[in-house]
Design a protein around this nucleic acid. Structure first.
Length: 244
DNA sequence: CGTTATACTGCCGCATGCTT
DNA sequence: AAGCATGCGGCAGTATAACG
């Protein structure tokens, strides 16, 4: 089971709080930490994106970052410079050390959010879609990508297999369950399922498949909730539509 | 090779819910 | 209240695979 988290490890508490709120509004699971040591302890066996500040007591320079990145292949790291004195050599060193991006502390919040989303688009398909067995957080639903079978009722000891899904329906549910409790946009579904042909089809196609998917999932179908104006989210907390 | 079944996609119309 | 987004059911056309 993969738990995807966005960690913020910077010294400016006020800035961290602001980013925490901004990212949380985007349905991201966010955690603010004080030190790289905290991150190392927390991120064990978890996948995530870490926004770390170069210059922290236990991350003084690019060399320290390189050591940390080398030992944490489960993390994608965005380096941040908290000081105003930033030069090309610093940026280059951080990226060479293994950082996937470099930002300044005074970066516009919206720009940072867009960057985070871009990284997630790159990371999530690799993390979540690579798994052959995906289980819901409450353990009641399981997807076997190898056999393309969905098993339900695992929690209440009344197992049931759903094998009647078409490939497109299976792919859609697979992505939704892989991103449980996160909003999945129609565009994302299009890009993940239809790849380079995604631009050739209308979003009604997604709606159509989601609709038949809900029907085939029976009582579990109601857990696929529409996020008005955005896309869909799969979770076990409540039913009906939700506001964007 | 022709037929049949299935999957995929698009379009339409209507109802309902949400936003402004 | 009006406009927009979405859900849902239905229908039709196309592509592809399976089968005789």
């Amino acid at each position: 089971m993969i738990d995807f988290v966005l960690w913020i490890v910077i010294s400016d508490k006020k800035l961290a709080d602001g980013w925490y709120r901004a990212f949380s509004r985007e349905y991201l699971k966010v955690q603010c930490l004080g030190t790289i040591a905290d991150l190392a302890r927390t991120a064990v066996e978890m996948k995530g994106l870490a926004l770390v500040e170069i210059g922290l007591p236990d991350l003084p320079d690019a060399d320290a970052l390189k050591t940390f990145v080398a030992g944490h292949s489960n993390l994608s790291v965005i380096a941040m410079a908290g000081t105003t004195k930033v030069n090309n050599a610093m940026i280059t060193a951080a990226l060479e050390a293994g950082a996937d991006d470099f930002v300044l502390g005074n970066i516009d919040e919206r720009v940072l959010l867009s960057k985070i989303k871009a990284h997630l688009r790159r990371i999530l398909p690799n993390l979540a879609c690579a798994r052959t067995l995906v289980t819901s957080r409450n353990g009641d639903i399981e997807i076997d990508r190898t056999r393309r079978v969905i098993r339900t009722g695992l929690k209440n000891k009344k197992p049931n297999s759903i094998e009647s899904l078409t490939p497109k329906e299976f792919d859609i549910f697979s992505i939704l369950l892989s991103n449980e409790e996160q909003v999945v946009s129609r565009n994302f579904l299009m890009e993940e399922i239809w790849k380079e042909k995604s631009g050739q089809f209308n979003c009604e196609t997604i709606d159509k498949h989601v609709e038949t998917l809900r029907r085939k999932l029976g009582p579990y179908g109601k857990h696929i909730r529409t996020v008005y104006g955005t896309g869909y989210i799969f979770n076990f907390n409540g039913g009906g539509s939700s506001k964007a």
